[in-house]
C-alpha cells in the first residue's frame, strides 16, 4: 500500500464524513450553505471530522510506541491497562471534586494512566516467560483488575452509568465546545515524531540502548507520558476505542517492516482512515440511527486482531 493511495483514501473518506448525516448536505450545497447547514457544518460535522482524524492517528501512534518499547506486537493502550487506569482516574477525579472541570479530569486521569502503564511495564520486567501471546493476556487481565476497582467505587457512588459511557467510544456527541481538548494530541504527535528514532533504539533493550549512548529511562518515560496523555484525551472526548492502537501498527508493519520513523506517518494515516471508515459505516448502516464507534471498531477490530493472531501462528 503506497502512502499516496492511503492519502487519497483519507481525502475521500474525510469529505464523505462531512456529508453523511441526518441533515442532508450535499457537496453542491457548499457554495450556498443556508444558515442552518453552515451551523451544522461548524458545530457538528467539522469537529467530528477533526476529532476522528486526531483520535485515529494518535491512538495508532500510541500503540506503535508501546509496541516498540515493550518489544511485543500485541501491546497497546487496550492491552496494557492504560485505558482502564485512565478510566479509574476519571472516576477518582469525579469523586474527589464533584464538579471537576475537563482540565482537572484530564490531569488526574493522565496521572492514573501513566501509573497504570508504568505498573504494567514493571510487570513485564518481572515476567520470566516472555511468550508473545502471554504478555497481552497479562495486560488484559491487569486491565480487568483495575476495572474491578473502578466498579467498586462507581457502585458505591452510583456512577456505574457514567462509567459505561466511557466504555464505548461515541463520536455523535462531539461538537463545538466539547471536543477541543483533543487538540492536545497534536503536539504529542509532533513530539513522537521527534523521538521516533530514539524509541526504536530504546526498543532494543536497556543494555543495548545504553551502550549506544541513549538515556534509556528518559526516552521510555517520554514515550509512556505521550501514551498516557493521548489515551486520556481520547477517552475523555470520545470514549474507549478498543483495538485501534493494536491492529493499525500491526497492519503497517506487515507490509512496511519495523522502522518506527518510517512507519509513523503511515500508521497515523491508516489509523485515521480506519476510524473514518468505521465511523461512516456506523452512521449509514442503520440510518437515520447511528451505531456507536465503540461497537463498529470493536467488531471489525476483533476480527482483524484474530486474523493477525492466526496469521502469526502460521508463520511461527
Amino acid at each position: 500500500m503506497k502512502k499516496r493511495y492511503l492519502f487519497i483514501a483519507f481525502l475521500i473518506l474525510s469529505i464523505t464524513s462531512l456529508f453523511v448525516g441526518v441533515k442532508d448536505i450535499t457537496p453542491l450545497d457548499l457554495f450556498h450553505l443556508s444558515e442552518d447547514q453552515l451551523q451544522i457544518m461548524m458545530i457538528s460535522r467539522l469537529p467530528r471530522l477533526v476529532s476522528l482524524i486526531i483520535a485515529g492517528a494518535s491512538m495508532s501512534i500510541c500503540g506503535l510506541i508501546m509496541q516498540q518499547l515493550s518489544r511485543n506486537k500485541f501491546v497497546s493502550p487496550t492491552t496494557a491497562g492504560t485505558m482502564d487506569a485512565a478510566r479509574l482516574g476519571i472516576l477518582v477525579s469525579l469523586i474527589l471534586f464533584s464538579s471537576a472541570t475537563m482540565m482537572e479530569q484530564m490531569i488526574i486521569a493522565s496521572l492514573f494512566a501513566l501509573a497504570g502503564t508504568f505498573l504494567f511495564m514493571k510487570l513485564l520486567d518481572r515476567i520470566k516467560f516472555k511468550d508473545a501471546i502471554f504478555i497481552p493476556l497479562v495486560g488484559l487481565m491487569f486491565g480487568n483488575i483495575i476495572n474491578s476497582i473502578t466498579t467498586f467505587f462507581a457502585f458505591k457512588h452510583d456512577l456505574i452509568q457514567s462509567i459505561s459511557s466511557w466504555l464505548h467510544g461515541d463520536f455523535s456527541m462531539v461538537m463545538t465546545g466539547r471536543y477541543e481538548m483533543i487538540y492536545i494530541s497534536i503536539p504529542l504527535v509532533i513530539i513522537s515524531y521527534l523521538f521516533a528514532q530514539k524509541f526504536t533504539v530504546a526498543g532494543m533493550g536497556e543494555e543495548l540502548s545504553t551502550s549506544l549512548g541513549l538515556n534509556y529511562r528518559f526516552v521510555v518515560n517520554i514515550g509512556l507520558v505521550i501514551v498516557a496523555l493521548s489515551t486520556t484525551v481520547v477517552l475523555l472526548t470520545v470514549g474507549t476505542i478498543p483495538f485501534l492502537g493494536l491492529i493499525v501498527p500491526n497492519i503497517v508493519s506487515i507490509y512496511h517492516g519495523d522502522n518506527l520513523k518510517k512507519n509513523l506517518s503511515h500508521t497515523a494515516l491508516l489509523g485515521a482512515v480506519f476510524l473514518l471508515l468505521c465511523d461512516i459505516l456506523g452512521r449509514i448502516l442503520i440510518y437515520p440511527y447511528e451505531i456507536p464507534i465503540g461497537l463498529t471498531v470493536g467488531v471489525i477490530g476483533s476480527v482483524i486482531f484474530l486474523y493477525l493472531l492466526m496469521r502469526r501462528k502460521a508463520y511461527a
Binding site: 459505561s164 466504555l167 464505548h168 478498543p242 483495538f243 451505531i291 456507536p292 465503540g294 461497537l295 470493536g298 467488531v299 476483533s302 486482531f305 484474530l306 493472531l309
Partner: peptide, 12 residues
C-alpha cells in the same frame, strides 16, 4: 478477544 466482541455487542 471473543469476550471483548461480546462486550461490544452487549454494551450496544
Amino acid at each position: 478477544v471473543m469476550g471483548t466482541l461480546f462486550q461490544s455487542f452487549s454494551s450496544f
